[in-house]
Amino acid sequence: MTTIITLIVAAVTFGTVLMYGTLGEILTEKAGNLNLGVEGIMYMGGAFGLAGAFYYEKAAGAAASGPLAIILAIIAAFAAGAAASAIYSFLTITLRANQNVTGLALSIFGTGIGQFVGEFMRVSEGGYVALSNNLKESFSAAIFPQALIDIPVVGRIFFSHTVFFYMAVVVAVLMFLFLKKTRYGMYLTAVGESPATSDAAGINITKYKYIATIIGGGISAIGGMVYIMTTAGCVWNHEGLSGVGWLAVALVIFCIWRPLNAIWGSVLFGAMMIMYLRISIPFIPTEIYKILPYIVTVIVLILTSMKNSRDKQPPASLGINYFREER
């Protein structure tokens, strides 16, 4: 029992990282933009988030407060991701560059920037960038009182996580409400499904695509920051972060573009990615566990395309740029 609870808690920790990446990408793809730069965006979020917290502590010294550091890290990561996505948006929406190629270019660029900033901080600070233990703890502290966490079984599963997990759940619910219950959300979905129809209906396509992509990129970037500040222990670690962005892209498919699915989907993927550390199943080599998420995603992709049910498809215009004069 304890093994399972430990597994779930660890899965949630890694799943939180994925959840931000996925939620951001869902919003982006809802607008019809396939941003394959998530990997780069999450690198940038990680590096800038760490930089935000680190330089804040350096400036504030011993008076640095945990909550403020968290807020600054979130803002820094979000801004970095938004800036990266702004480049992507400008190229694909205004200049109509190919989305796949632009996304891959952003991936290369973003991983480069993330690495560069991480390395640069390390070199300029004399070899080691780390927060003080106080701040580190505030990033990975549970937010609920100990009494709740001590409830047997349920306590650790539901109440022992960091603030980032609960925030991600809130973002997922808000995104669901936005997409399903508000007019703007409906418009956004319409833009992703059929830009030409939306354009004819008087919706400002460009505005919706820009805003959704930029905010989506910002949300994804927070995931990178969460990884660096919780799992990696507030130290720049590019190896651990590599591949996370691609996994988030896979997860978007697995969730069939629904934000609420991202909550359990990311925990499930998180579990698959760390399972090899905790449980060994006879006859299945541990390395094979790690490809499970991708295999599951492929199966979902195949099944949805075979069934051809309309509400489970990718946004119809995904990956295709819209140009009004082109018919």
């Binding site: 780069g40 480049i87 190229l91 200049l95 560059a97 190919n98 190629v101 632009t102 270019a105 952003l106 290369i108 660029f109 973003g110 991983t111 480069g112 920037i113 690495q115 560069f116 390395e119 640069f120 070199v123």
Partner: peptide, 19 residues
Amino acid sequence: IPASIADIITGILLFCMLS
């Protein structure tokens, strides 16, 4: 200078050429 500068310049090159 971190070798990742190659990725950054490659990225910028791709962005500019795509534009």
